[in-house]
Amino acid sequence: MSDRLRLTAPLSSLEAWVDRFARAEIPVLTETAELLEQMRATEDDVDANGLGEMIAADPLMTLKVLATASELRRSRSEGLQAYPETVTAALVLMGITPFFRAFGPQPTLEQALADHEAALLGLSRVMQRAERASRYALGFAAHRADPDAAVIHSAALLHDFAEMLLWVHAPALALQIAADQDADRALRSAAAQRQVLGIELADLEQALMKRWHLPELLTRITDDRHAHDPQVRCVYLAVRLARHTARGWDDAGVPGDLHDIAELLNLSPEHTLKLLHEFD
């Protein structure tokens, strides 16, 4: 991506951030782009489950498909089902051939940040954290026999998508936030974001989900402000644990995570730790 297309200074308001990111191109993982082209070549053999499973491993491709399906759902006549809450449901709504028509060869994250190795590394860490969080959240939901386990998985995967987009479209600002937190280990993420961006990424994320008309359940489960709700708590604790264990299990926040997860799952801390290592 050309430097002239990147943000190097904060925008004036949350609305300005939403407008900028809502119009910006969303690149995906190289592996996703390559697998899509392989599937495109054998489109008649592709089904929604197989395609959905592949897409659901990529947070930003998941975001693009859900946003496109929600827009399609809005444009169709009334009396249809609710907005699709999972990638597979979105693909069933769209149809396989229309999906491949709507999604041509995809731009990749590696291309977008080919000239910015530090930003690509920072983004990769966020993507890996999201993948781990989605596994934890799905495990928690399955243990609780939650009927919305698939939506909870998607919510955890998408929980930090605004941070991913920041690394792509404003890498200098994302690096500044990371540097500020490295310099002050007590500095909370939200405070660092306000300091550098003038907004919190959680607010940007919620506003973008509403702009793209993503399903209400998915939007709500992704919002930490409702963390008293057990479904939201599955996502919140999964994301928190993935963040705390990103560099190992010796982080000072892990014991608190274990206590809260054990309470959510109604298990002992010892049994919870064993279960978490199985999920991992």
Rank of each mutant, 00 (worst) to 15 (best):
P269S: 08
I177E: 05
H213W: 06
L273C: 09
L121C: 06
P107F: 10
A119C: 05
A142M: 10
S12C: 10
I55R: 00
S70E: 03
A170F: 10
L273Y: 07
V235L: 12
S154E: 13
Y83P: 00
R185H: 13
S70D: 02
L109S: 03
V239E: 09
T86E: 07
D44L: 14
T30F: 04
I261T: 03
L218N: 01
H226L: 12
A114G: 00
L60G: 01
L7S: 11
R211N: 08
D224P: 09
A41T: 14
T32V: 12
A183N: 07
D229E: 15
R101Q: 15
N49H: 14
Q111T: 07
H228L: 13
A252I: 11
A262P: 01
P230D: 15
G253H: 04
S13R: 02
T8P: 00
L109W: 01
V65N: 00
A41M: 13
H159Q: 10
L123S: 03
E270H: 05
E216D: 15
E163I: 07
I261S: 02
R194M: 12
M1E: 11
E278D: 14
T219L: 09
D3C: 02
P27V: 12
S13Q: 04
A119Q: 01
C234M: 12
T32W: 05
L63F: 04
S13L: 10
I152S: 02
D229F: 08
A114H: 02
A57V: 08
D260N: 10
T32I: 12
H213R: 06
D223Y: 07
I261L: 05
I55P: 03
A150F: 08
D45K: 12
L11S: 11
L275K: 02
R40N: 14
P215D: 12
L273E: 15
G253M: 08
A202Q: 05
L275W: 03
A145E: 10
H153L: 12
A207V: 13
R132I: 15
E216Q: 11
A56L: 07
A112I: 04
R144H: 02
S134Q: 13
A207N: 03
Q193H: 02
Q38W: 11
P255L: 14
T108N: 06
M209I: 06
W17K: 03
L123R: 02
D184Y: 04
R6F: 09
D47R: 05
L80H: 06
A133R: 00
K210L: 15
D251W: 10
R23N: 05
I261C: 03
L165W: 04
M127P: 00
A262L: 08
S77N: 10
P147Q: 11
S12E: 15
L80C: 04
A9Y: 06
W249H: 11
I221Y: 08
I55A: 04
L241R: 00
G198Y: 04
